[in-house]
Simulated scan of single mutants.
Amino acid sequence: MMANLFSSFDPSTSFHSSLNWTSSTMSIILSPILYWMIPSRWIMTWLKLTMTIHKEFKILIPKTSYSGSTLIFSSLLMFIMMNNFMGLFPYVFTCTSHLNFNLYLSIPLWTSFMIFGWMKNTKHMLAHLVPQGAPNVLLPFLVIIETISNMIRPGTLAIRLTANMIAGHLLITLLSNSGNSLNLMTLNFLILAQIILLVLESAVTIIQSYVFSILVTLYSSEVT
């Protein structure tokens, strides 16, 4: 039984816990970070980059089927690019250098495009299997070729990204392993070559993430 009417508001008696005051911090935790701080240059740069990518993808998608779908492809580009960049740091696992990880990215997207295309635009998907102006004699072979090329798209996306990520990292690793047996003069050239390869690999991380996202965007535009 309560000693008085206001004892339920006493933190020392309510549930006999010293953590009752933590409820006052929930408003701080649940509030967005932009509520407490002015957008920094890093946030503004990130938003500017996102808008630039959005405008780039918007050109490739028809206006009738746009509906903000570029946000998916922009997020995909940023996700792949960040994973590629993380692999440039020493002792950091490169997720995008493994085929199974890249297949987990490409197969669900390609499958969803195919299901949407065949359910909503069946005639368009059938017409896409036959190139315009092709001879009637070659039509059966062209349908088979187009079907096979369409089915291997997720595999080519994953293999392209995997091969490009492995090639640069493997070359840097092979060159670094030979440094112990070199003299001082040759070692300086090796360090210079490593720096050049690291710069090129940084460019590859951006290019490959861009290529992956652009191809996925083009595949989505074909089914609409």
Rank of each mutant, 00 (worst) to 15 (best):
M114T: 04
P140R: 05
I29R: 11
A203V: 09
I43T: 11
I61P: 01
A167I: 11
N4Q: 02
N4C: 10
E56A: 15
I144C: 02
L5M: 08
L49E: 10
N84F: 12
F141G: 02
S176E: 15
I72V: 09
A127N: 11
K48I: 02
I115Q: 08
W118P: 05
T111E: 01
P135C: 03
V137P: 00
Q132Y: 10
P11S: 10
I53C: 00
L105P: 06
I53F: 13
Y66S: 10
Y219K: 01
F15T: 01
A158H: 05
I43V: 12
N100K: 01
K120Y: 13
L76V: 12
S75L: 07
A134T: 07
T96L: 02
V204Q: 06
G87A: 07
I28C: 02
W42H: 10
Y219T: 09
F73Q: 04
N4A: 07
N164M: 14
M151N: 00
P154T: 02
L60Q: 05
P11E: 04
L77V: 12
F101R: 03
N164Q: 13
S106Q: 05
F189Y: 14
L71F: 13
I61C: 01
V223H: 05
E222K: 11
G179P: 00
E222F: 03
L182I: 10
P108T: 07
H124M: 07
F79H: 04
C95D: 04
S31E: 10
I166H: 02
I145D: 13
F73W: 14
M82R: 15
V211F: 12
I214P: 00
N20F: 02
S112C: 13
L99W: 14
G168L: 12
P62K: 15
S97V: 04
K120M: 12
N20L: 08
N83V: 03
Y35E: 11
W46C: 09
K120W: 11
L192P: 00
Q132R: 08
I43E: 15
P39D: 04
G117C: 09
L126G: 02
T122F: 15
S112R: 04
Y35A: 12
Y35G: 02
I166C: 04
T45M: 00
R153I: 11
V130L: 14
S221N: 10
M51C: 09
F113W: 12
I28R: 06
N121K: 14
F212G: 02
A203T: 14
F79N: 05
S27W: 06
I59K: 15
M81F: 15
L170I: 03
A163I: 12
E222R: 13
L192T: 08
N102E: 14
M81G: 02
N177Y: 14
I33D: 09
L187D: 06
Q208S: 01
I166L: 15
M1Y: 07
Y66G: 05
Y35I: 03
L76T: 05
K120V: 14
L182A: 11
F101S: 08
L200M: 09
S24Y: 13
L184H: 06
I191H: 14
P90N: 10
I196D: 01
K48V: 01
I80D: 04
L77D: 01
M82H: 09
L129Q: 06
